[in-house]
Design a protein around this nucleic acid. Structure first.
Lengths: 359, 359
DNA sequence: TTGAAAGCGCTAACAG
DNA sequence: CTGTTAGCGCTTTCAA
């Protein structure tokens, strides 16, 4: 009972992370090393290391002496040294196109929570979906600053990554190309988009526009195919002028896309935007040109960010399990790290149509 | 011209970050060290190190030989080793209450951009404003995993930090207590809140509610004082029942606070929320109980996140220079790192009232 | 202009 | 159960 079995060396060592006396902290010399603690405790550095890492083979009395010295001196392990010695950084790199997007923010939280649970920290990098930045961040893996990476960037840039470094431990999240051969987690974008469009069709709409994101996202292509096929299946010939691609998921992008859509003589009666942020912008843009939602134009979004339920009118959208997406990605990566040669699966998580007032 | 003067060792070493032949990468052995490169180039490890770090005293011919070996082998420096040797992690810790809040997201971007410009990466930690998590993250500094920290958490927890470790290199951002003695950047919350309330007063409102965030944020106290004094100055006795504190900045918190406010017999005609997310929730909550904004109730927010201009009605709010806040915080920290003993100032950035339709 | 060698602080054999 | 010791891969004197 007083002897920890099976110790995780990256959990806070017993006695070390506990609140210690202020005096101890005050006295903490800057350059105190394990050798200093060993001396104070009258043992060898090896023993201190053992105690710090929770190894079982230490006599309780010795352990206490070491712990006392640690507490008294305010010693903290130098993880720079530990990292070199163990050849791991305990850092997980997360590359995301836009931290500011609420969708990504939530995915990130999922990643972070699982990472921390396993003694890893998250190095978050905002790539702006720029291949150059992506590459340079990815290089952190080779330089050993991160043990593994999670990539949410466009499949086009993921392919480049895969080509030159299939062996490096990384996984794809949300955006993925199942053919590149890295583990991935995401949803069935084709079906999800179809579900959204079929909902619009069921509401009686025939003129349905698509506001899509940048085409080098594979998910954009998949959602577009889902949209087209759903239309075709309903006997509707898609109107090319009603398919817009925007190069950012900002509210503004959605707003101006919507406004331009409404300049047509016989404009669409419904809009499907592939992101809630876009859809919220669409609603604002529609309002700015005097259109009411959903009376004049219905709007459906994608993601179900928390804001979707709060705007006027509340947004009908496809819910993605954002947190789970992130959590799963982190688990897949951890799995790959633990067993570099083992096969790691691709996993598809379920989506869900959430019907609110906007469509 | 062909000799880099004044080289920053953390910028990509010349020739190393450039795209190399695929063959080079393919052939890269996992455990290639500087010694291997030295051998291939027929020089000593010291020389390789000099080349890698752009030291001037290397004969061009030698340098080329080394660079060729580096390119051919696909060698990448092991930063774990470099970090131990140079005793720095080149990581900046950022502790933030909620990554998902658009306000913080934007501040974070500012931090990240300056950090990267100076060869640092950002370790982002979501504390949930929890003192325990804060403490444990902060410990990363002592363990040498980060060279410095930027804290956006409540002043109450910052005080604890300061008490036990005034000597550690950290700065406060957005939320700060000028008396704790660490460098900080923020805005004049007292004046900003006053500006918002005075705008409401000028619009003819007398019954003005305040929806405030958790009281252990100093900014919440400052904004409350600004609100109260502005009312008092206008000869109005503040009504205590109209001051609400919520413990989260989520949309939902704003929505339910607004709804409860409207249960009063003679409810407020205007609401000042100390965060845009709260204000957006307030508008949704008002709508849910049948109130129109701004006709029945005017709403003012705080921050000017990008969403503020998109909702219906567009939000009147106090703009904070979010990016600059982050950038400045990073610069202050870098300054402290460069000169640990030097005095680092507290800096106040300007805010701005943005009048839109909601008030 | 270059090389040899001494560590940075830690972990993990290997002995005892 | 404990101590001695050999590195991890790099940077940096110090000498040549």
């Amino acid at each position: 009972m007083d002897q920890p079995s099976q110790h995780d060396p990256h959990a806070p060592p017993p006695g070390v992370a506990e609140p210690e006396s202020r005096a101890g902290l005050r006295g903490a010399p800057e350059g105190l090393s394990i050798a200093g603690v060993a001396e104070q405790a009258g043992v060898s550095v090896a023993t201190v290391s053992r105690v710090l890492n929770g190894h079982p083979n230490v006599r309780p009395a010795t352990r206490d002496r070491v712990l006392a010295a640690v507490a008294a001196s305010g010693y903290r392990v130098n993880e720079l040294a530990r990292n070199l010695r163990t050849a791991e950084s305990r850092l997980l790199l997360t590359m995301v196109p836009d931290v500011g997007n609420p969708f990504y923010a939530e995915v990130i939280r999922g990643i972070d929570s699982v990472a921390r649970q396993h003694g890893y920290f998250m190095l978050l990098c905002d790539t702006g979906a720029d291949p150059g930045r992506e590459r340079s961040y990815f290089d952190l893996l080779r330089r050993r600053r991160a043990d593994g990476a999670i990539c949410l960037d466009p499949a086009t840039v993921q392919q480049a990554l895969a080509e030159e470094s299939n062996a490096l431990p990384w996984v794809a999240c949300c955006e993925f190309d199942s053919s590149v051969g890295v583990p991935y987690v995401g949803i069935d974008n084709y079906r999800a988009a179809g579900d959204a469009v079929r909902h619009l069709l069921a509401r009686g709409h025939r003129r349905i526009a698509l506001i899509n994101s940048d085409d080098h996202y594979l998910y954009a292509q998949q959602r577009q195919r889902g949209y087209l096929d759903a239309l075709l299946d309903a006997g509707i010939t898609p109107d090319e002028r009603w398919r817009l691609n925007v190069n950012s998921l900002d509210y503004e992008a959605g707003a101006s896309a919507a406004a331009s859509l409404m300049t047509h003589a016989k404009p669409p009666s419904a809009v499907f935007a592939v992101s809630d942020t876009l859809a919220i912008g669409v609603i604002a843009g529609l309002r700015s040109v005097g259109k009411r939602v959903p009376d004049d134009v219905a709007v459906a979004g994608f993601d179900d960010i928390s804001l979707a339920a709060q705007i006027d009118p509340p947004l009908t959208t496809i819910a993605q399990p954002m947190r789970e997406l992130g959590e799963t990605a982190a688990r897949l990566l951890l799995q790959r790290l633990a067993n570099p040669t083992g096969d790691v699966p691709g996993v598809l998580l379920p989506h869900r149509l959430v019907v609110r007032k906007s469509a």
